[in-house]
Write a protein that binds this DNA or RNA. Structure first.
Lengths: 356, 356
DNA sequence: ACGCACTCCGTAAACGTTTACGACTGTATG
DNA sequence: CATACAGTCGTAAACGTTTACGGAGTGCGT
């Protein structure tokens, strides 16, 4: 009624063609930048499309050419993720979009319900042909999603290694480097008993993290003590519990490496309740950038990264694995170990032996 | 090659029909639970579909029936959102999905790139027919998205009021109730000079919040002092700045109400740097549940809510506004003011005058 | 034998796009 | 003048579904 009189009659490309008195084939070619169309008519079509607010119906297009121009980022909306609240994915999203925008690809996030099996969810989404390609994360040690995507030949990239398929594109955080660097640093400060936290889940990262920690210790002739590997949840709550267990050890460690930065919040709290001062009585080093931990006191020494840059690299790697876009990203193969940078804080800024 | 020999031949409903030696029409009817199909054949079709791993191609289906069975949740991936990191949306998502699952609707999250106008982004997504309905949030005081969706007759529900359209379905947080409750509580504890923070943006919530604060004050014959309304960003950084400005006021307030709980982290820090102790020298009350703030010391008094329940209600309201599902949600009309619950902490647990 | 109702199923059109193909110009080339 | 070719455009098929319509078969009552 009170609309501009244009958009109301806008149903599809047919109306646009009638409006211009041109065949729909030409209109389609004009819009999609195909060569065999007069530049003058292309100009007219573009102008009319803009004026009438025409945008191609995705269903029709997808059906015809078998692709959706949509990339899916699968995330887990588990309770733990919500609790931890580090907006990790939103950070990565910006980087991804900056790459995808160049090819008019849209990114959607697919939150797997906590009561549904991630593998089933993924299969459902892929089968519905709602996306052309997938980005998955939180890869498990053996992850059926990876086998499925490989076999179904759906382009994808994983954030996190896995033992599942022998050969698939992934980017993973440099757990080895971090564990190594942290241990070296603490040993240089005089520490000998260094505790570390490990996830209780089947996530792959835990194994790599601990293994690297172990090797770094042995390189300095410090025997590996299994009791110093504390298995807790990677959350604030887990941090609290870690501190609790840590304080109960007969020979108390002088340092602890946290696999997830947020745990520091709970850890600090438990320590302080027991009169143990982080950064003086116990050295603490964190891992993976979580903005929540930035305001801790004493400030936390931790390893950080640019989520945006990580997103960019994920995007490039994905496109490099899609036939249509491969040519644009010749160098971007696969298997990047993503480096992290140490931001030195006050939480480990002391030499051991002074107060002990 | 090494696939099971089933899924490789699985292209569409046609293959399924050939496999069963049945027409595709019957297969479709069987799968969709239409009445005129023999129960025996239906059983066979279902079994075969399961065996061959057939799932209907969404593009074909959408094209035919003009709906996608997908609901979009639009979120902003602005830098500020990432920084604040409260996983607000993931929390809401679970509630939404629990409702949508009953109708086999899928939820996708649409992150608007920070460099794109939200209105344009929304238009693009809707025009592409990628979703049937929309959930929008972060509504502005005047929000073109609301006009657009109303006029285009796209079912939607907004998280947040707006002045744009006279009449549209929304749920909003009970800013008035919170401001009112907070002021009353502080006055009861003897406070007379109560500061409050307000967003610097055009978000609608700021106006409602301040207005309620003002009325509550005037009800107790306390004159409204504009200098006590501190306009800062709703972030940790903003909290820090708020404390800074607050300490510079000639007649220092004895209490402050924060419009966003996370600001408390920055606020605490700035206060402590100046030797002002929250919970003793200054009362602090927060708003809106942010898990990051839970571990503050002294513990923060704040207003909280169940994100899950909020999601459920949003979902119901949306479906109540969609012709197909309306009948299932007769009671769920519109315009809910979402209540919040005070969780009393230590940050305002003192009577004024004792130390002042 | 016939009509009727009912159950079940096949046929074909339709949804909005893209694109292979061919048709029609006009111009250059032999 | 015939042919070739480039430039431009229209035609129609195809993508995978759903669904209105009608037809075949069966059972039953007249």
């Amino acid at each position: 009624m009170q609309t501009e009189g244009k958009s109301q009659s806008m149903k599809g490309i047919r109306q646009l063609a009638e409006y211009l008195d041109i065949s729909i084939g030409t209109v389609s070619r004009a819009l999609n930048g195909k060569p065999d169309v007069n530049e003058e008519t292309r100009r007219r079509v573009l102008a009319a499309a803009d004026e009438l607010g025409y945008v191609a119906n995705q269903s029709g297009r997808s059906l015809r050419q078998g692709e959706t121009k949509v990339i899916g980022l699968m995330i887990e909306s588990s309770k733990e993720t919500v609790e931890n609240a580090d907006n990790f994915f939103l950070g990565v999203t910006s980087g991804l979009q900056s790459v995808f925008a160049r090819h008019k690809l849209d990114l959607i996030m697919l939150p797997c319900p906590s009561d549904e099996d991630p593998h089933e969810y993924l299969k459902r989404m892929v089968a519905r042909r709602i996306v052309d390609a997938m980005i998955i994360s939180d890869t498990q040690r053996v992850d059926r999603r990876i086998d499925f995507l490989s076999r179904a030949k759906i382009p994808f990239v994983a954030l996190g290694r896995s033992l599942s398929a022998s050969n698939f594109p992934w980017i993973d955080l440099d757990f080895e480097g971090v564990a190594d660097h942290a241990v070296e640093r603490l040993i240089a400060l005089g520490h000998r008993r260094i505790a570390i936290t490990a996830p209780s889940s089947e996530a792959n990262l835990g194994y790599l993290f601990i293994e690297s920690y172990r090797r770094a210790l042995e390189r300095h002739d410090i025997p590996f003590d299994p009791s110093l590997v504390i298995r807790v949840k990677s959350s604030e709550q887990g941090g609290y519990q870690a501190a609790h267990e840590l304080l109960l050890l007969e020979e108390r460690p002088t340092a602890v490496i946290l696999i997830y930065e947020l745990m520091a919040i709970g850890l600090y709290r438990c320590l302080m309740e027991s009169g143990v001062m982080p950064g003086r009585d116990l050295a603490v080093i964190g891992f993976r950038d979580a903005p929540r931990a930035r305001f801790l006191q004493p400030s936390l020494s931790c390893f950080r990264m640019s989520l945006y840059d990580l997103g960019v690299e994920l995007g490039r790697m994905l496109l490099a694995n899609m036939p249509v876009y491969r040519e644009f990203y010749p160098g971007d193969g696969r298997n990047i170990i993503w480096p992290l940078e140490l931001m030195a804080g006050e939480s480990d800024a002391f030499r051991v032996g002074v107060m002990a």
